[in-house]
Amino acid sequence: MIWLTWRQQRFEAGLAAAVLAAGVAVLVVTRQAITADINALGIPACLSGLGDNTTCSSAYQAFKDNFSAQQTLLGALTYLPVMIGVVLAASIAVEMEQGTYRLAWAQSVTRGRWTLTRIGLPILFGLAITGLIAGVTSWWMQPANQVQGPLRPGSFDVQGLLPPAYMLLAFAITVAGGVLWRRTVPAVGLGIVAVVGIHLAVQAWLRPNLMTPISYLWVSGSAPYGAQDWVVQGGAGASSYVYVDAAGRQLSSEQVQSICGQVVDAQSKDAWSSCLQAHHLGELVKWQPPSRFWEFQAIESTLVVGLALALLLLTVWWLRSRTV
């Protein structure tokens, strides 16, 4: 049965392994460049509170510009596990569509063993491949995580537990569609659309609300900023900025602009900072600190894996008792 499963899926397995190898090669090469870039811009000094704010501000801007190409690469990596899950499950959908499962069922292996092997082995393989991908991308993201935290949408999704979790969900939805529907193309379409839809919805609405953000007051221009300030500047999991005065009252940005004018260039930016300080205005930042990375990973992957397991149970039940 193991041989049969391998023979039926070796093409997909080879494809996934080739993608993995190519991806690792690209990531190993580009990680060097990112590390070199961070050092050349002097960002380590900023993070340890040794740089001056103006220099660090432009260093951060430069890093963001340089990193945008890699950010595109991350976008591609986000849905790679989904594609792997769909492709591995598509082979089972094809088997249901063509009716070849009956050839296997007419041999001497019981339906239970067939189901377990035919569905279990691709899952193990997919988890292994996407686990490796997640390991490599997590390693690749380390330098950038130092600069901007690991919680940015896009970079959060390619690290830790989420790639295998979304692979499993994509597999479960596609295989459920294939077994219930017995049509490959609709099952694959359903798998892709449903998982991408769920992922985008989670990213936009669920994830920011999973844990209450931490608030802290950030005073513009005061002394050299510390690592936390810069990580927030880098866009790490920050969800809102509100201006507050010394008494803690909120001000709209129009109100602040009426006091301190507008930022149009570097000079007015300095004036803006001094003005905010002079009027004792600060920004109340609500954000998720990088230390919550694993908690977020655990919560979201538990939800995703739970949904996937429910679908897999339905599929196995359907295969064992409803499929003729």
């Binding site: 041989w3 093409f11 009716g99």
Partner: peptide
């Protein structure tokens, strides 16, 4: 028991020899 059906569902990507190998793996 042995079974064969109309337009028999055979794995299209297999060779005939691999079908025999499948049989030898799945049957004592």
């Amino acid at each position: 028991v042995g079974y064969a059906a109309q337009e028999p569902p055979l794995f299209r990507r297999f060779s005939v020899g691999e079908l025999l190998k499948m049989g030898s793996r799945l049957n004592r």
